[in-house]
């Protein structure tokens, strides 16, 4: 597992709100981790600040990245860092 993956998993883990938190893995869905819409928006902001990227994520737009799982988030961030 790369450093970036570990760091992103750590950033998401800090937002987990479920009463009995399961380990955060690449396969965990943000939904099952208890992240609500505002958590996802704040997570996107944290990732943009940390990795100096612009994530084209809009709560109304299905054409932007779909953050279903932690792996989706890692994948989007990695692509944006590499293309930046």
């Amino acid at each position: 597992m790369s450093t970036m993956e570990n760091e992103i998993i750590g950033m998401i883990a800090k937002r987990v709100r479920s009463a009995a938190p399961a380990p955060v893995t690449l396969g965990s869905t943000l939904d099952e981790l208890g992240l609500e819409s505002l958590d996802v928006i704040e997570m996107a902001f944290d990732l943009e600040e940390r990795f100096n990227i612009e994530i084209p994520f809009n709560a109304n737009n299905s054409t932007g990245p779909a953050f279903k799982t932690v792996g989706d988030v890692v994948s989007v961030v990695r692509q944006l860092v590499q293309s930046g």
Binding site: I41, A44, F45, F57, N58, A59, N60, N61
Partner: peptide, 20 residues
């Protein structure tokens, strides 16, 4: 913009294509 609810297209209330 930071709230990620703004449309870059236009405002289309109640339309299936609405984007914010």
């Amino acid at each position: 913009e930071a709230l990620r609810v703004m449309s870059a297209d236009t405002c289309r209330p109640f339309s299936r294509e609405r984007s914010g």
